[in-house]
Amino acid sequence: MKIFAQRWLVFLGCLVVWQFAAASGANPYFPPPLRILRAAGDLWFSGPAWHLWLTSSVGDDILPSLARLLIGWAVAAVIGVLAGIALGRSAVATDYVAPLLSFARAVPPPLLVPVFLVVFGIGPQMEVATIVLGVVWPILLNTIDGARSVDAVKVETARAFRITRSRWILGVVLPSALPKVFAGLRVSLALSLILMVVSELVGSTSGIGFQLVNAQQATFDYPAMWAWIALISVLGYVLNGLFLAVERRVLGWHHGYTGQAGR
């Protein structure tokens, strides 16, 4: 409880200092927190009562952005895990694609946005394609790594008990790889948020990233721009928190097992 208070008091203290500094300095780029808060209220929570006081911006910008992020991430997860398990259990197959994977992973994904723009046009397909192609690599490479390193004794145990092929994949290889898979998924989730914003900054007419750059370039509304920045930060915080909660549930055994082994 004391630690909790310490943490939040300092955070609040910083905000208060910022408030006074900004209010006295009057630098247009750094509006005081209360103005940002008011801008956020105007942007998202000033809607009609029958809409739960949410504005149309929530439904037009925030939710579609979130949906594209999650769809892109989920598609990348499915592709990455399936291909990763298949490749990870075959050293020969991995050899054929290894140079391509190392190269693909190193390409900064925003560079491909022009290509996706001409192929898909401005819109959600372009964004989802950018996210999928940008975030699939950490998942794929981590899954390959995890699936490849199934413990030798577990391989022999499964063989000794004549485990069927499907149960071998689902019951032994996948759980063995899961800690690595989750590490990849987590990196990819953070990367998805980045690419969602980038793709909307470049080629979109709605969404969080579009509104962000719109507030800066078209309306010069800096409190609104800060509100969008804060929203992105909160989104990242919440997504990461939810992911960790799921990971703790799914990988509970892993923490117990490694905790015991590392006594």
Binding site: V10, Y29, L193, I194, V197, V198, G209, I232, G236, N240
Partner: peptide, 16 residues
């Protein structure tokens, strides 16, 4: 402070 700054993608700060 760190926990709120860390998830903030730099690209969101580009306009600022």
């Amino acid at each position: 402070i760190v926990e709120f700054l860390r998830p903030l993608p730099s690209v969101a700060l580009i306009p600022l």
